[in-house]
Design a protein around this nucleic acid. Sequence first.
DNA 1: CGGTCGGTTGAAGCTAATCAATTAGAGTGG
DNA 2: CCACTCTAATTGATTAGCTTCAACCGACCG
Lengths: 232, 232
Amino acid sequence: MRSDDLASIRRLPLFATMREENFAALTPASYLQAFPPQMQLITEGDHADFLHVVVEGCVELFARHNGRETTLALLRPVSTFILAAVVEEAVHLMSARTTEKSRVLMIPAQDIRDLVARDAAFSAAILRELAGGFRALVRELKNQKLRTAVERLANHLLRLDAEQGGHSVVELPYDKRTLASLLGMTPENLSRGFATLRPYGVEVNGGSIRLTKPDDLRRLAKPSPLVDPGTR
Amino acid sequence: MRSDDLASIRRLPLFATMREENFAALTPASYLQAFPPQMQLITEGDHADFLHVVVEGCVELFARHNGRETTLALLRPVSTFILAAVVEEAVHLMSARTTEKSRVLMIPAQDIRDLVARDAAFSAAILRELAGGFRALVRELKNQKLRTAVERLANHLLRLDAEQGGHSVVELPYDKRTLASLLGMTPENLSRGFATLRPYGVEVNGGSIRLTKPDDLRRLAKPSPLVDPGTR
DNA sequence: CGGTCGGTTGAAGCTAATCAATTAGAGTGG
DNA sequence: CCACTCTAATTGATTAGCTTCAACCGACCG
């Protein structure tokens, strides 16, 4: 494993506070693997054998049921996933696949569980990570149940803009079908969503989107710190 | 606090494994309070000062946004809530109110956080509780995104039936407006949902519901262990 | 006995999904 | 460099699912 990868993983909230010897013990048993795009890493229903960390690229968490499929989250470096299944020694509730060329660190689940028992600082970090994930999920559920598709889209654009520096020019970090699925809508409906947002200054040009009237858009979207992560 | 209440709380997964002295230290600072129906206990946006435990009655977790309101969960004894906000020292993302006469144990958040730092067994129990909550939320999000309203209703009925002993007679433990909100639909639409389930052997009589063709209903609902808690 | 409230029913409208067709782009190979 | 192909994205037409508004019903309660 490259030492700068190791360093950036060590800097994760999850690993930052753990004892050096424990971190050192963790890494040799782990794999840092490179994957091509659209490679499925995890299948829902399978047993959770590894904690995963996106080191580079992008990973999509999704689920299928009864002929339908939906995206539950898109993860960018550096984030962990399926922590809850590892803690619970349970099966995955979500599948995972790369959306682009990616590198993913895989740590044996049993090692994580052993460490939780031994390293109090690590255990506390895991706790905070899970609590954060829980709250992110509550937000997402509220987003789904309390907003229309267009409102979700508007808020997502504002959030992407904020993440990308607030220059009112957003680059979609994934294709529109994936975005549609994440927002809980069809690709067709996403297209129409963009169209209805045109009067609010949303100018779409491929994967690049200009927000020419951010205030109007914000008035429509009504972002809230109790729904949207990173909102004040 | 009544000693049998204390005992049943002690039996909770959250408290069962913690050291006796720590449990003893926790209780004097806590309040076990009785509340009338429809009493709001928590308001989203407020700071989380207490961990709550439903000891008797029923508590509804709900959220409002932009003129809409939705029920996120209905909690029966004995369950804890807003654990994530306590761990994160953050504001509540959900409001809470009683749906009936209830008794709720309130434990100072700071005491919980202190204990997490001191008692490894308690910390591990909190971790499992949160992981379980996380997975319940993932299921709920999948339920919302992958199913229609009628499918959600059908599955909810099957689940209630299973919880109540599988006699194919379900007693709704809350009124229909609340159920509608929990399922993410309007009360009117819930009524119509019951009507469309009539051919599948769903006979509604006030709050009492007979399932005369459970197999037909199950074929429609398609319950799955990856979506529905407690499904085989 | 009127009043209120939870629930149901009806009609109309809106949002979003579906199906079908077309266009736009990104490679690919000649 | 230019057709050719394949896929993503858009657009149009239709349908399904759900909401909204309004009226109504029945039970419970003062």
